[in-house]
């Protein structure tokens, strides 16, 4: 145990995801040795992120105004909504430049073990968005793991009466990889989702 402030800092850093007690200690001593100006900059960044960043009132993505950049962009197709778990998934899909529709960030996936149910996710907001009849297709892009699949199934059942087109992202082989390195589950899914080649 260290004295007062140092131990305090170690404890606080240790609460961050992926930071264990040893890393927390290393970070704390790094900060202790750093220039005051550098530490001030970090402090400002931390304060600013809490003060300025909020969540988009429409899609739940991180934003600096009441609505995020994508929701404000009139060129984006309002007829297609892509549902993802986290804001970082929006960034990942944006990098592809393939998708021109809008997003909806759920804020997680259904996982009873962690006590996350549908009410803890932004599903009510999604239903409100879908009710105005503007949306024709819903793309379910939750993670391809059990919890993500369960969330996708739940949403698909929920919106079924609305008669929208509901699609799920395909899972399969990574591009540029070797078939032999794919695990059985991925390869099995790729077989299930195979397409006919047409010329």
């Amino acid at each position: 145990m260290y004295e007062g402030a140092v131990q305090n800092l170690i404890d606080e850093l240790g609460r961050l995801p992926g930071v264990g007690p040893k890393s927390a200690q290393r970070l704390a001593f790094h900060l202790l040795a750093a220039e005051t100006a550098d530490v001030k900059r970090l402090v400002n960044a931390l304060v600013e992120v809490k003060e300025r960043v909020r969540f988009c009132a429409i899609c739940g993505n991180v934003a600096e105004e009441s609505e995020c950049r994508i929701c404000r962009d009139a060129r984006r197709d309002a007829a297609v909504i892509c549902v993802v778990e986290e804001s970082k998934d929006v960034v990942a899909i944006e990098r592809t430049r393939e998708f021109r529709g809008r997003y909806h960030v759920l804020g997680g996936a259904i996982s009873p073990i962690e006590g996350v149910g549908p009410d803890d996710l932004r599903i009510k907001e999604l239903m409100t968005r879908l009710s105005d009849g503007q949306v024709t297709e819903l793309i379910l892009a939750t993670d391809p793991n059990l919890e993500g699949e369960a969330t996708a199934t739940y949403l698909a059942r929920l919106v079924k009466p609305m008669g929208l087109k509901v699609t799920r992202l395909a899972s399969g082989l990574p591009v540029g990889g070797d078939l032999e390195y794919a695990d059985e589950v991925t390869l099995g899914r790729a077989f299930e989702g195979r397409r006919s080649l047409e010329f």
């Binding site: 259904i110 009873p112 149910g117 549908p118 009410d119 059990l146 699949e149 369960a150 199934t153 739940y154 059942r157």
Partner: peptide, 12 residues
């Protein structure tokens, strides 16, 4: 009880 997702887990 909150059972909205039970059918989903039944499915899986």
């Amino acid at each position: 009880p909150d059972l909205a997702t039970l059918d989903v887990w039944n499915d899986h």
